[in-house]
Simulated assay, not measured.
Amino acid sequence: MSFYYRLQERLLALKSNRAFEFFVVAVIIISALEIGAKTYDLPDFAYALTRYLDVFITLFFLFEITIRFIAEPNKKDFFKSGWNIFDTLVVVVSLIPIQDSEMALLARLVRVFRVLRMVSIIPELRLLINSLIKALPQLGYVVLLLFIIFYIYAAIGSFLFKDINPFLWGNIAISMLTLFRVMTFEDWTDIQYETMEVYPLSWMFYMSFIFFTAFAFLNMVIGIVVNVMEEEHRAEALAHSKEPTIEDLQKEIKELKQMVSELARSRD
């Protein structure tokens, strides 16, 4: 066996090691804390410490992504994963020096996105994000229907309540912002009581709008996301069930040995 394949096996074992995975997660958390610390006014020694820490984190991420790339048996499959591409871009852009660089702002922004590497490391978070992405086409129709409801209620509210409070119901765009405030329950009763002084039955306008948006549509969104997550769980379980484990292979080898020994005894 060549040196490269021996190195690949060792790096694959290191990549799959739970302790190494926990250490990578710890470095990501430290990176997030370091980014947050830079938003405060720090003394000179603390600022210098964050600079050295940033260099260590950048080099460690470069080391970690290199391990993952070398450990991959088929290098083309490495770039078929969107998460691997994302991690690679974050690491490469993080190598841009922050000081005395025209791309300093871009480098700082990319360092913020290093926190998202937590998603690519933890399988459960990857499953959640993948489910949300796959649910977007279905959620798009829900959002379109929600916009139609918003538009209708905003037009009605603008026609009825414009003279009561032009600041909240002056035109359809402002009315939609007001309705968003109602949907999120941000002091919406103040808006309702103001219009009820002129139109006592205007509470029906708000109650029906809240029912359609905050209750019905929210449950629709939750139902779609949960359904997609269940499909992703089933697909992942099916994929894992097709892959034989080491115990299964050892069991099959024992059965084959028993069959061979029985055939040999029968011939004797």
Rank of each mutant, 00 (worst) to 15 (best):
Ala104Thr: 08
Asp268Glu: 15
Ala48Val: 01
Phe205Gln: 00
Ala216Glu: 11
Leu144His: 04
Leu263Val: 10
Gly140Asn: 05
Ile98Asp: 02
Thr178Trp: 00
Pro43Arg: 13
Arg267Leu: 14
Tyr47Trp: 14
Ser131Ala: 07
Ser131Asn: 06
Asn227Glu: 15
Arg234Pro: 05
Ile156Val: 15
Gln250Arg: 08
Phe60Ser: 01
Ile152Asn: 01
Ser81Thr: 10
Ile65Leu: 10
Trp203Ala: 04
Ala104Ile: 06
Glu72Met: 12
Thr39Lys: 09
Ala107Gly: 04
Ile156Glu: 04
Ile98Lys: 02
Ile30Glu: 05
Arg114Tyr: 07
Tyr40His: 13
Leu106Asn: 04
Val92Phe: 01
Leu33Ala: 13
Ala264Leu: 14
Asn227Thr: 15
Met196Arg: 10
Tyr47Arg: 10
Asp268Ser: 15
Thr88Met: 05
Ala37Met: 03
Phe78Leu: 09
Trp83Ser: 02
Ile164Thr: 11
Ser208Thr: 11
Ile96Glu: 03
Gly82Gln: 13
Ile70Lys: 00
Glu64Met: 01
Met118Ala: 12
Arg181Gly: 11
Lys251Ser: 12
Glu243Leu: 09
Phe22Leu: 13
Ile152His: 03
Trp169Asn: 01
Phe23Met: 11
Leu105Tyr: 05
Glu262Cys: 08
Ile222Phe: 12
Val260Asp: 06
Ile253Cys: 09
Val115Trp: 15
Ser94Leu: 00
Leu106Gln: 07
Asp187Glu: 12
His240Arg: 11
Gln138Lys: 02
Phe79Leu: 08
Val143Met: 07
Pro200Lys: 06
Phe147Val: 06
Met103Val: 04
Tyr4Asn: 13
Ala239Gly: 09
Leu53Pro: 10
Leu179Pro: 00
Asn74Met: 15
Asp248Val: 02
Glu252Ile: 10
Asn74Ser: 14
Ile156Phe: 10
Val182Gly: 06
Glu243Pro: 08
Arg51Pro: 11
Phe23Ile: 12
Leu62Ala: 12
Phe147Lys: 04
Ala237Met: 15
Gly157Arg: 00
Gln138Gly: 07
Gln258Trp: 09
Leu144Ala: 15
Leu11Arg: 00
Ile172Leu: 10
Phe69Pro: 00
Lys242Leu: 15
Glu124Pro: 04
Leu218Pro: 01
Ile246Asn: 08
Ile65Pro: 13
Met103Gly: 05
Phe205Met: 02
Ala239Trp: 09
Phe159Ile: 11
Phe215Asn: 03
Ile149Gln: 00
Leu11Thr: 01
Glu72Val: 00
Val92Ile: 14
Phe45Tyr: 11
